[in-house]
Simulated assay, not measured.
Amino acid sequence: MGFTEKSLSAVIEKVRFNSPLVHNITNYVTVNDCANVLLAVGASPIMADDIGEAAEITAISSALVLNIGTLNRRTIESMIASGKKANEIGVPVVLDPVGAGASSLRNRTVLELLERMRVQVIRGNLSEISFLAGLHYATKGVDAAESDRENNAVTVAKSVAAQYGCTAAVTGAVDTISDGNRTLRIHNGHSMLSRVTGTGCMTSALTGACAAVTRDFLAAAAAAVAAMGIAGELAYESAGNIGTGSFHIAVIDALSRLTQTLIEKRAMLDEA
């Protein structure tokens, strides 16, 4: 397959060079963090969720990220309009199905989004992606449920990738990313990332930035996931003993300081 640490670092470097505009229709719990991580890696964020401008903003953007974390009926219409516009003009779409499996509204919405638009990358935890794969799921709100760990992440990722013709990224202690043919596992990260709200949303935003600069969406998702994992490790080393608030800020600091050399030194990946 030829995937190396350099493959990932090259994508992040391209983001810094191109500074792509990334349109996020995301949730209000993490919208500020998503904007800041995009700025940290050199991308330009815009958060426009009103139906009066959503599709128009997508038309001038290089990627669209849809996040259903704080789902409401008003933004569903905007997501559909933006997704259709993105498909029309060839802008890649990243979907974060936050809490899929937790409520009938979330379940209906994520399936409707996937029916009404083409999505290039789906990023979620094991419970969320298991729901999309039609497997057993017992989601714990917006977190992965312990009982869902019996589902094999490689199988789940491959199944969703094949079903929706996309790249599927299942993030967790070990991250699994597949486009249905190629499958990678990334072993970076730190458990403290799960104690800060929004690190998954941030990873999806980063995926949008990476998808904006390469049409190899497996590489885009892997670069974003690895970048967040490495940032978590660096944040723990610098601020983990202070507390979760300092760790949170240190993650953004680490992303702003990521270099090709640092990524190539610390990235840990293998083929599944």
Rank of each mutant, 00 (worst) to 15 (best):
L66D: 10
G198N: 05
S82A: 06
T259S: 15
D253R: 15
E146N: 13
V98I: 14
A250M: 03
S103A: 10
V22C: 06
E237M: 13
R215Y: 11
N36Q: 11
A205W: 09
C34F: 10
N107T: 13
N107P: 14
V94N: 11
T176Q: 00
G134F: 08
A224Q: 04
L111Y: 14
D216T: 09
A35N: 04
G208V: 06
A133N: 03
L21N: 06
S78T: 01
E56L: 11
A81H: 08
L193S: 01
G134L: 08
A48M: 06
D148S: 12
I122D: 05
A205Q: 07
C34Q: 11
A10V: 12
T214M: 07
H190E: 07
G172E: 10
I89M: 03
L269P: 09
V15K: 04
G42R: 08
T30I: 09
L258W: 03
I242M: 08
E264M: 01
S159P: 09
R118I: 00
V213D: 06
A205I: 08
S204G: 15
N67P: 13
A133V: 06
S19A: 14
I46W: 02
V119P: 02
R182L: 11
V170Q: 03
S62N: 15
M202T: 12
K14L: 10
N152T: 02
L234A: 15
L21H: 08
N24F: 07
S130K: 11
R116I: 04
T199H: 05
C34A: 15
T203K: 01
A81Y: 12
V174N: 08
R149Y: 15
M192I: 06
T58E: 08
A205V: 06
